[in-house]
Amino acid sequence: MSAEAIQSRREWLLSERPASRMQARLGRAYVAWRRFSANRLALVGLLIIIALLLIAALAGVLAPYSPTFGDLKNARLLAPSAEHWFGTDDLGRDILSRILYGSRWTLYVVILVAIIAAPIGLLVGTVAGYAGGWTDAILMRITDIFLAFPKLILALAFVAALGPGIENAVLAIAITSWPPYARIARAETLTVRNSDYIKAVQLMGASPFRIVLRHIMPLCISSLIIRVTLDMAGIILTAAGLGFLGLGAQPPLPEWGTMIASGRRFVLDQWWVAGAPGFAILIVSLGFNLLGDGLRDALDPRSGDQ
């Protein structure tokens, strides 16, 4: 594409007089992207997350060995080498392959937790904030009860009740992570509920349901996305923690936390068994944090609409 064409496309996106709904929306997204991409670290974060997605999708092609079957006879606890980049574990399985496959479970956990917890928090928070009175009091006291316990302890309790397993771990983490989202959504709702533009919609005859769903929720979503992204690292760590304690993913599932747990016995002599998955968790958590920071700059409604 010629420089001229790029220039004219940019002008089209930044137009002060969009000619269609589509152009207005794309223009807005483009402005947010420009703000996001101005932050180098955020781009690094985005790259890490894209890499994680690609690895998860292509794990079957990328992994040199099977993640679940190892060569018990010849390949137990081998140090990193050209053959086994990250070494092998006590059952003779290639650690690199396990980490590549493990990315799927990491994504599975964070995505499921996000799509369960965020909408619950959003709904509880906006309804409580908009309705006020008794509804608010009851919903927020329930939220407080959840917030009163340390997250990991509460998740442990839930998993203990539900039984170990990765699905139950997801459920337990989701149940314990919605309350902060509800708090954020409620705070945002309180700042906008008395604004004239919400009153104007009330004066159109809109139902409370419609106001919350179509006018208040869209305003809360960006701060929620930011918060969820920043929480991703915490979710990964909690999932890993549950796995480590034997309450999350069960062997032989190549989940990173479980891998660390099984590697801890030889952490002094064969450090790579626990070290490699630990490093993977570190990188991915960092990626989500950087991405979240970048999103905060790009989406934060308080940073102005320009």
Binding site: S195, D196, Y197, K199, A200, V201, L203, H215, P218, L219, P301, D305
Partner: peptide
């Protein structure tokens, strides 16, 4: 119907 005082506050920002 009603028209509000502050045109900066009466239109939804998004």
């Amino acid at each position: 119907q009603m028209v509000f005082q502050d045109p900066y506050g009466s239109l939804h920002p998004r």
